[in-house]
């Protein structure tokens, strides 16, 4: 028995080995390499010199970088807030629909979710052009006389961000509301709570895990979506993701690495907070 147990363990180790090796080389070493790179300085050969420096991190503290970082955080927070305000009620109401209506709405939500964000954002680009459908409609209605500048504005970037990421708020909310035992809410109502009171003291706390998972799933990617900048914001409003891309383009790899390390730290902090406030850590609801 003991021998067979040992044999089992040896065999399971063998099964795990490829995944261990892969993760060590392509995740651990790769990220470590980025961290190492962030302490080097820019040079001619391979884009770096062997000189170790904290200069990149010092530059991160300069006003230009701080401005971009604050802007990115603000946009990420704003995106998350709007996704909560729209996505949470949507997920909630969707879970309360009749089974047939629910599966139709689910299909309608999942299709954009599976369609490349690039394609969906591109649609907004057409819509928001100065002679595009939105401006044409507004002018025909007589609401405006000159085409509004809609594209290449901060508002357009925010819209694109919310649009790209809102399914990540809707789906986890839907899943938790769907699992919620509504007799608890009815009990609160029977005991005299108003519908709103019952909603905020019973439903919201019980569906908080889904809401928090949604926040993490919206907040983290919103800091790195550089193509939104390109397609909707032009070069005017640069965000952290867009800045990393620009640094890579100008071959300043150590600085791009330093910014990535900072982004990684923010991501780690967000996930740590999420775990701390009782997130289950299970964000794989798909």
């Amino acid at each position: 028995m003991d021998a067979s147990h040992k044999q089992d363990l040896r065999f399971s180790r063998l099964l795990k080995l490829p995944m261990y090796l892969w993760s060590i080389v392509f995740v651990f070493v790769a990220l470590l390499y980025v961290i190492g790179l962030s302490f080097l300085s820019r040079g001619e050969i391979m884009g770096v010199t062997g000189e170790v420096t904290l200069g990149n991190y010092a530059r991160l503290a300069s006003p230009d970088y701080v401005k971009v970082l604050l802007q990115s955080l603000k946009l990420a927070a704003l995106t998350t807030a709007i996704c909560i305000l729209v996505g949470y009620p949507f997920g909630y109401l969707m879970a309360r629909l009749s089974p047939v209506a629910r599966s139709v709405v689910m299909l309608l939500i999942i299709v954009p979710f599976w369609t490349n964000a690039l394609i969906r954002i591109y649609g907004w680009r057409i819509l928001l052009m100065s002679n595009g459908p939105v401006n044409t409609l507004l002018m025909n209605l007589g609401l405006i006389h000159e085409p509004l500048k809609l594209l290449y504005t901060d508002g357009a970037v925010l819209l694109g961000m919310v649009y790209a990421l809102i399914p990540f708020m809707i789906l986890p909310t839907f899943t938790t509301v769907d699992k919620l035992d509504f007799s608890v809410v009815e009990a609160a109502r029977d005991l005299g709570a108003s519908p709103l009171h019952a909603f905020f003291t019973v439903t919201v706390p019980l569906t908080l895990p889904g809401l928090m998972a949604g926040c993490v799933l919206v907040f983290i990617p919103s800091m790195g979506l550089f193509f939104l900048n390109d397609l909707l914001g032009g070069s005017k409003s640069v965000l952290a993701g867009g800045l990393i891309q620009q640094l890579i383009n100008s071959r300043d790899l150590p600085m791009a690495a330093a910014l990535s390390v900072l982004l990684l730290a923010v991501t780690g902090a967000v996930i740590a907070v999420y775990r701390k406030v009782g997130g289950t850590g299970d964000m794989s609801m798909f």
Partner: peptide, 18 residues
């Protein structure tokens, strides 16, 4: 192993590139 689907993609993109 699950880090790649948690962190912003751009970080992984840069990491693989270098």
């Amino acid at each position: 192993m699950s880090l790649p689907i948690m962190i912003p993609e751009i970080i992984l993109g840069l990491a693989f590139m270098v």
